[in-house]
Simulated assay, not measured.
Amino acid sequence: MITMEDIIRDGHPTLRLIAKEVPLPASDEDKKTLKDLLEYVKASQNPEIAKEKGLRPGIGLAAPQINVSKRMIAIHVTDEKGQLHSYALFNPKIISHSVEKTYLSNGEGCLSVDESIPGYVPRYKRVTVTATTLEGEEVKLRLKGIPAIVIQHEIDHLNGIMFYDYIDKQHPFKPIENAEPINN
């Protein structure tokens, strides 16, 4: 199982690389890595397991965060209506997005960033993503709200982008045009 020690921290060069496509069908090693990413996110949300294993709670994790520069992400998050979005994806790609933006009113965090970096992170309100599942099935996901924000955050990791790159350094809490906040 992935532990907090496996998660590389801000400043590590792998976090700024553009991750490589995963050759499909995925190798057993790549499948295991992707399963481990999802297992970490799920376990980190269970207070007992998180405390026992010293895990920081997370709702998404990308392979580059464990120093594997490949296009794999895992997400385990509940949307505003209480519906669970749990995905382990190879080669996720945003194929379309809304014009409208959104952002988390309390800002974003990251398992690779230990300190709190305040500020609004503009994201698309809705995204359509194509990817391949652990089972090798091609999927098209239409996401909005928090799941859309999380998948954009994780796909950014695959492109060497950190959430704070989007924060206006001079005015971190400046209202974002054409954007609706999500309270988190």
Score class of each variant (00 low, 15 high):
Thr102Cys: 15
Val113Ile: 15
Asp165Pro: 08
Leu55Asp: 05
Ser98Gly: 08
His85Thr: 15
Ser96Arg: 15
Pro175Arg: 06
Val129Thr: 04
His85Ala: 08
Lys125Gln: 13
Lys140Thr: 14
Arg56Cys: 06
Ile176Ser: 00
Ser116Thr: 06
Pro118Glu: 12
Pro92Arg: 10
Ser86Ala: 11
Val68Phe: 02
Ile155Pro: 00
Gly107Thr: 02
Ile95Trp: 13
Leu89Ile: 03
Thr102Leu: 13
Gly58Arg: 08
Thr132Leu: 05
Asn46Val: 02
Tyr103Lys: 04
Glu100Gln: 15
Ala74Lys: 06
Ile151Asn: 00
Lys70Leu: 06
Pro175Glu: 10
Leu55Thr: 04
Pro122Gln: 04
Ile59Val: 14
Tyr164Gln: 14
Lys53Val: 05
His97Phe: 13
Phe90Trp: 10
Gly119Gln: 03
Lys125Ile: 02
Lys125Ser: 12
Ile95Ala: 12
Ala88Gln: 03
Gln170Arg: 12
Lys53Thr: 05
Ala148Gly: 02
Tyr120Trp: 11
Gly82Trp: 09
Asn46Gln: 12
Arg126Leu: 06
Phe163His: 09
Lys144Arg: 13
His157Val: 12
Lys53Trp: 10
Pro118Ser: 11
Ile146Ala: 10
Asn183Gln: 08
Val68Arg: 08
Gly119Glu: 03
Ile73Lys: 00
Leu104Arg: 02
Pro118Gln: 11
Leu158Ala: 01
His85Met: 09
Leu61Trp: 07
Arg71Leu: 06
Glu52Gly: 00
Pro57Ile: 07
Lys174Ile: 10
Gly145Pro: 02
Gly82Ala: 12
Val129Phe: 03
Val139Arg: 10
Thr132Lys: 03
Val99Met: 11
Ile167Pro: 00
Gln65Asp: 07
Thr133His: 08
Tyr87Asn: 04
Pro57Leu: 13
Gln45Glu: 09
Asn46Asp: 15
Ser96Phe: 03
Tyr166Lys: 15
Ser98Leu: 07
Ile146Tyr: 15
Ala179Phe: 05
Val113Glu: 10
Ala62His: 05
Ile155Cys: 01
Tyr124Val: 01
Glu115Asn: 11
Lys81Tyr: 14
Val68Cys: 02
Met72Phe: 08
His85Phe: 14
Thr130Leu: 06
Thr132Gly: 02
Val113Met: 12
Gly60Glu: 05
Leu55Glu: 03
Phe90Leu: 07
Leu104Cys: 10
Pro122Glu: 03
Pro64Gly: 05
Ser69Ile: 04
Ser116Glu: 12
Ile73Asp: 00
Pro175Ser: 05
His85Tyr: 14
Lys51Cys: 00
Pro181Arg: 12
Pro181Thr: 13
Leu61Gly: 00
Tyr120Val: 03
Lys174Cys: 03
Val121Ala: 01
Gln83Glu: 15
Gly82Ser: 11
Ile59Glu: 02
Gly109Ser: 12
Glu80Gly: 08
Ser69Pro: 15
Lys51Leu: 09
Asn46Lys: 11
Gln170Val: 11
Gln45Ala: 01
Gly58Pro: 07
Ala63Ser: 11
His85Ser: 14
Thr102Ser: 15
Ile95Leu: 10
Ile161Asp: 04
Val68Trp: 01
Asp165Trp: 07
Glu138Asn: 15
Ala131Gly: 06
Thr78Arg: 15
Pro47Val: 03
Ile117Phe: 15
Leu143Ala: 02
Val77Phe: 08
Glu115Pro: 04
Ser69Phe: 10
His153Cys: 06
His171Phe: 11
Val127Met: 09
Glu115His: 10
Tyr120Pro: 03
Ala74Asp: 00
Val121Gly: 00
Ser112Leu: 05
His157Gly: 02
Val68Gly: 00
Leu141Thr: 03
Leu89Thr: 01
Gly58Phe: 07
Asn91Arg: 09
